[in-house]
């Protein structure tokens, strides 16, 4: 896999490899479901989904190749969503 920054962008093989890993992770999340792990299973499903989302963002959407500015501001909506959901749960749990 050639990950050098070239005029033509990443090599085809890099995309195919990313896709194969995404398929593997899909199989993993279905497998975790069949293990019936309860709340640990839910956490595992969310972790696998985030790993898949990360691969799509970094390789298919080229976030890895974008400048530090875009990578930094990308964290803003993600963290904001996390904080809003987190604060909502503080209200739900301790009301």
């Amino acid at each position: 896999m050639n990950d050098m920054k070239t005029e033509t962008g990443p090599a085809y093989s890099g995309y195919v490899l990313t896709w194969l890993v995404l398929l593997g992770l899909t199989a993993a999340t279905v497998l975790v479901y069949h293990l019936h792990l309860g709340s640990a299973g839910a956490a595992a499903a969310l972790a696998i989904a985030s790993l898949k989302a990360g691969l799509i963002l970094l390789f298919f959407m080229h976030l890895l190749r974008e400048g530090p500015f875009l990578r930094a501001i990308f964290l803003l909506p993600v963290l904001l969503t996390g904080v809003i959901i987190g604060l909502t749960f503080l209200d739900v749990w301790y009301r």
């Binding site: 999340t29 479901y33 019936h36 792990l37 299973g41």
Partner: peptide
């Protein structure tokens, strides 16, 4: 997908 189809 996991949130709607794979709830244990």
């Amino acid at each position: 997908f996991p949130l709607f189809y794979l709830i244990t």
